[in-house]
Design a protein around this nucleic acid. Structure first.
Length: 255
DNA sequence: ATGGCGGCTCGCAGCCGA
């Protein structure tokens, strides 16, 4: 079973890219972020024509998450239970006994911003919920746009970014608290190329200059991690015409 | 040097992302 995550930065604009990927043998389960699409306008016919089902939680203009899958989803959960967040950032469902949690973690804007406080508070809510989810679902995958570069090697210029949003210690500690629940960064289970990133700023030719950050992740529970055979970033998607600024990440599970 | 690109909207300028 292949599971993947991709921040599409508008599903409407990226639908052709998505359809091409799915037609060429896409993952079995695909978590999407920043769909920027209201539920009533979700492109269900196009997804189904590609041979996938979907569940989604979206809103106009901002945020929005979805899970596409070849098999039907079970036990779909929208949002973090007990957390009344108007921003559509979480959807979870179960596939073949694997709990798949799709997250779009807040960006935070800058470490002095109110949005940064929201990001850290949001991460605490997520962590508490994932802790309980792991008890219910020992086989769990937490996929999405984390907006956190967990390590200096995940940043093109760690000196310049030191202490900045995406790289600050509180954010990295929050990431490590998730790891501490019993999760593994699947990407780092394997030898990877130097300068592996998942996001490159549209500006300043950052992609061509190979200057990016690794902020999209697939974390696997300790029970699920041993079945992981690979984890790769699909950089080609970022090289296409009119790309998302994020590339997809795919993990292959021997299930 | 806080820009830059690209997406969005009760659009034609301003917000937001990261």
């Amino acid at each position: 079973m292949k599971i993947a995550t991709w921040n599409v930065n508008s599903l409407k604009v990226r639908l052709p890219h998505l359809q091409e990927w799915l037609a060429a043998g896409g993952p079995d389960v695909l978590c999407l972020q920043e769909t920027k699409t209201e539920d009533g306008k979700f492109c269900v016919p196009e997804i189904e024509a590609s041979g996938y089902r979907c569940c989604y939680s979206g809103q106009k203009t901002y945020n929005g998450v979805a899970i596409l899958s070849r098999e039907p989803a079970a036990d779909v959960q929208i949002g973090i239970p007990g957390y009344d967040d108007p921003q559509r950032r979480v959807i979870a469902a179960t596939f073949a006994g694997v709990r798949v949690v799709c997250v779009y973690i807040p960006n935070g804007e800058s470490v002095t911003s109110e949005k940064y406080k929201y990001k850290l508070a949001w991460l605490e809510k997520l962590t508490a919920w994932i802790e309980t989810q792991l008890r219910t679902y020992p086989k769990l995958a937490l996929l999405g746009d984390y907006n956190i570069a967990p390590d200096d090697r995940d940043v093109y210029d760690p000196k310049a970014w030191e202490g900045q949003v995406l790289c600050s210690e509180p954010e990295r500690q929050a990431f490590q608290r998730l790891i501490g629940l019993g999760l593994v960064d699947s990407f780092r289970m394997f030898e990877q190329p130097e300068k592996s990133y998942t996001w490159w700023d549209y500006r300043m030719n950052m992609f061509k200059r190979k200057l990016g950050m690794r902020i999209d992740h697939i974390l696997l529970s300790t029970e699920l991690a041993p079945s992981c055979r690979s984890c790769v970033i699909d950089k080609d998607m970022r090289a296409k015409e009119r790309p998302s600024d994020h590339a997809p990440v795919t993990a292959e599970l021997a299930l």
